[in-house]
Amino acid sequence: MIVALPAKEIISQLSDKFPGVIEEAGQDSVLVKSDSLPAVAEHLKTAAGFKFDYLNYITAVDYYQYFEVVYQMTSLEHNHSAILKVRCHTRDNPTVPSLIGIYQGADFQEREIYDLMGITFEGHPNLKRIFLWEGFDGHPLRKDWNQ
């Protein structure tokens, strides 16, 4: 069975290697600074105790004051999972670094979030709409979007 790795454990190991990147920690989720996301993800994927080699999903939430992008990854070796979050505080052009270089599976999900939420993933090689058609006005899953 896959169990969630307690955030405490993740933080205790991360804070030595990446001082100052953790903004907030819940029970089993870790909020990191968005510009250090690729480095943290890379570490979680490769470091011996973690080995989070499988990206379950990426999703995004619109909290009005900020957008939150949520990543869940699982280690198929150790059977544990973790949730990583980043925030962007601007509505005009929210930007998060792309994880496509670390997890290939991030490709379509980042495009989906870009399509429906309007969050730009920096470094994505083919960031364009995936569900809606070219010419659709705006990003419909934003809370302030109106038909």
């Binding site: 364009k128 709409r129 058609w133 070219e134 010419g135 659709f136």
Partner: peptide
Amino acid sequence: EYIYSSTELDCDEGRIIEE
């Protein structure tokens, strides 16, 4: 002006749907 993509296929598809 296409905002999201400039690939011919995407533009065509978008145009047809909008029409």
